[in-house]
Amino acid sequence: MNDLFLTVLAGLQIGAIYAMLALGLTLIFGTLGVVNFAHGALYVIAIYAAVQVAINVDFTVALIVVPLFLFVVGVVFERGVIRFFYDRPHTDQILVTFGLAIVVEEVAKWLFGANNIPFPRPDWGDGVIIFYGPGAVIPPVPVFQEAPQLWLPFIDGFVTFDYWRIILIGVTIVAVSVLFYLLQFTRFGLIVRAGMRDSDMVQFLGINIARRFAMVVGLGAAIAGVAGLFGGPILGVTPDQGMKLLVPSFLVVVIGGMGSLAGAVLAAVIIGLSLAFTADNPDIQAVIIYLIAVVVLLFRPRGLLGRKGVFE
C-alpha cells in the first residue's frame, strides 16, 4: 500500500507541472487559436527570473514579482508578435513561436551558462513530509521530528515524500481553481468566452476584445510563471527545461482536447500517473504517453473533453 500511495503522489506531482503548462497552452489556443510553441520559453524565463529573485532578494518576493513579470512578458509577447499571426496558418504560428523558443533558450545559455543554477527553497517548503500509519515510530532525529506529519490509516509504518512536491500539487489545484473561477464566474471570463465563440460579434458590441486577448496571453504566461516558481526548485534551472517540458505539455493539451481547460487537467493527471506507474519499465515508460495519445485520438479525435469546431 505504501508503494501504491507514493507512486500515486509521484504521478500527481508530475502531472501538476504538465497541467500548469498545458493550461497556459490550451488557454491561448482556445481563445486566440494560436499554437504557442514558445510557451516552454515562458517557463524558462520564469525559472531564471524566480531563481534570481529568490537568491538575491527572497522567495516570498519572487512569489509576487515573477507571475506579474511573466504577465507583462506575455502581454508584450502578444502585442509584439502573436497578434500579427492570428490570421496566418497554424504552421506559421508554430514556426515563429518555435523560433522564439530557440532564441530564448540560447540567450539563457549565453547569459547563465548551460549548467544548472541551484534553486534554494524557502525554509517553509524545505525537507520532507511524513505520512504515517497506526503504530508507526518516527525516528528521533530532528529532521523527521520537525517535519510536517500526516496520519493516514492505510500507511504501514511511515513513508517520507518531498514536501515541496506536495506544495506543488496544492499550488496547481489553487491555480486551476482560480483560472476556472475567472473564466466561468467573472465578467472578464464572460467576455473572453464570448470572444472565443465570435470575436467579431463581441467587437460590434463595443468591447475591446484585443485588449482582453492580450490579457489572456498574459494570464497564460503568469501561470507559466507560477509553474517556474514551484517547478524550478524540483526540475532545475537550465536553458533546455522549456523544450523538455513542451512536448509532454503539448501532448497533454492534445489528449485533453484542444482548448479544453478541464481536459488539460484530466490529461495531465493521466499522463503523470502513467509515467509514475511505468517507472520500473523504461521501455514502456518511453512510449506510454504517445500510446495514450494514439489510443485517445483513435477513439476520441477531439481529445478527451475537446469540443466540436476547435482546431478543425
Binding site: D3, L6, T7, L9, A10, G11, Q13, I14, I17, D162, R165, I234, L235, G236, D240, Q241, K244, L245, L275, A276, A279
Partner: peptide
C-alpha cells in the same frame, strides 16, 4: 535528460 526523478526515487 530526464528532469523529474520522483517516480524512480519512489
Amino acid at each position: 535528460g530526464a528532469t523529474d526523478y520522483s517516480q524512480f526515487l519512489v
